[in-house]
Simulated scan of single mutants.
Amino acid sequence: MFLDARRRRLPKLFLLVIALALPLTACGQDLGRSNFGRTTVPAAAGGTGQQTDGPITDAAVAANALRVIKPCQFLTKDALGALGLGTVEEDPSPSSIAFDTCSNKVKDPGGKEIRFEVKVGSTLLPRADKTTGQVGGLPLRVDKSDDTDCLAAAMTALNPDLALAVTVAYPGEPCRPAQTLLEAAVQKVHNSPEKYSTPAGTLLTADPCAMADTATVTAAVPSAKSAPSGLHSCEWKSNGSDPTITVKFLPGLPPIVGGGYSKVDIGGGVTAYQKQPTTSSSRCVVEWQHRPWQGDDVELAQVDYSSYAAEASSDDPCGKAVTVAKNVVGKLPKP
């Protein structure tokens, strides 16, 4: 789950799915043996959080505030070093395909590696029954999938769920460093967090769920219902299932013709690139450059249509994706 190979031309099309359906043992007060001090995340009475359903009204963790927060600030040498978890040898590694994800690693005093990933606005989260208390006034969910992997999440929104999430891989007691880092991150979010610059027209501040008209999406996805799939991604599903339209904003290199991608005009003088993967399902991705980002990278907008129940030959996935893309491009903030 920590791999983030540099995408040289086109964004990855699939999110990594974290298997949380199996019965799991949540981390409680007894976190076992470790080589560093115990975290001080408080537990609510009875072992459940004081708030397990919405709304969360903390302005510091509202979606508009979180969209511009830099995720790597929580994983710098100074930030990790202050937690007393061990030795930090490297600078953090920002994701090359997401604005909101960063990773780094620490060697504990015994020489074992602790691998961290922070995601601001995660939707791949522990279930509500994994709520174990609060962190910084936010509901805390903790899920230990096995002896080496743990996911700790400070819920920033409920129904639909979003969170500031820390994933740890550690051949010790992974929930302890996960909760330790999460507590520090939540404190930082409430106390002058570092933010991206937001030049005119940036997609960083755009709400992807507001970037497509319901009528346009419904033509491709009947009875469409939208829900955020991250701070920079939104899904419309037909009756909560299939087919699906996803609107996503992400960093990446400018798209080009090749690898099955071809040019398509989406209006407003914008050239996009479309690809219909050669799979048994009906799917098409349309993406285009919006504005410069950092270095060689640009801000990309992407529309992804998929239906696993339909045949591509009769479904016209690219026709549907392009129609939505033409709607989205006209609603994006202007550079």
Results as ranks from 00 to 15, higher is better:
Met1Gln: 06
Arg6Phe: 09
Arg8Gln: 10
Lys12Gly: 15
Ile18Thr: 13
Gly28Cys: 11
Leu31Lys: 06
Leu31Ile: 10
Gly32Tyr: 06
Ser34Tyr: 11
Gly37Met: 12
Val41Glu: 00
Pro42Ser: 07
Gly46Lys: 09
Thr52Val: 14
Thr52Leu: 10
Ala59His: 09
Ala62Cys: 12
Asn64Ser: 15
Ala65His: 04
Leu66Pro: 00
Ile69His: 03
Ile69Asn: 01
Cys72Ala: 15
Cys72Val: 13
Phe74Gln: 03
Lys77Arg: 15
Gly81Lys: 13
Ala82Asp: 14
Glu89Val: 09
Glu90Thr: 11
Asp91Cys: 03
Asp91Phe: 00
Asp91His: 05
Thr101Asn: 08
Cys102Lys: 07
Gly111Ala: 10
Lys112Gly: 02
Arg115Ala: 14
Val118Tyr: 02
Gly121Trp: 02
Thr123Ser: 09
Leu124Lys: 09
Pro126Gly: 11
Ala128Tyr: 01
Asp129Thr: 13
Thr131His: 08
Val135Asp: 06
Gly136Phe: 05
Leu138Gly: 05
Arg141Gly: 06
Ser145Ala: 14
Ser145Tyr: 08
Asp146Cys: 04
Asp147Ala: 15
Cys150His: 05
Leu151Glu: 05
Leu151Pro: 01
Ala154Trp: 00
Met155Trp: 01
Leu164Met: 07
Pro174Asn: 08
Ala178Gln: 05
Leu182Asp: 00
Pro193Arg: 12
Glu194Thr: 14
Lys195Ser: 08
Ser197Trp: 03
Ser197Thr: 15
Thr198Gln: 15
Gly201Thr: 13
Leu204Trp: 06
Ala215Asn: 15
Ala224Thr: 02
Ser229Ile: 09
Ser229Trp: 02
Ser229Lys: 08
Glu235Thr: 12
Lys237Trp: 03
Pro243Thr: 01
Ile245Ala: 02
Lys248Asn: 11
Phe249Ala: 03
Pro251Ile: 05
Pro255Trp: 04
Ile256Trp: 02
Gly259Ile: 02
Gly259Tyr: 06
Asp265Ile: 05
Ile266Asp: 00
Gly267Ile: 05
Tyr273Leu: 02
Gln274Lys: 15
Val285Ser: 03
Val286Lys: 00
His290Met: 06
His290Gln: 11
Arg291Ser: 05
Asp297Pro: 00
Asp297Ala: 11
Asp297Leu: 07
Ala301Asn: 10
Asp304Cys: 06
Tyr305Pro: 02
Ala309Val: 10
Ala312Lys: 13
Pro317Phe: 02
Pro317Gly: 04
Cys318Met: 01
Lys320Ile: 01
Gly330Leu: 10
Pro335Ser: 04
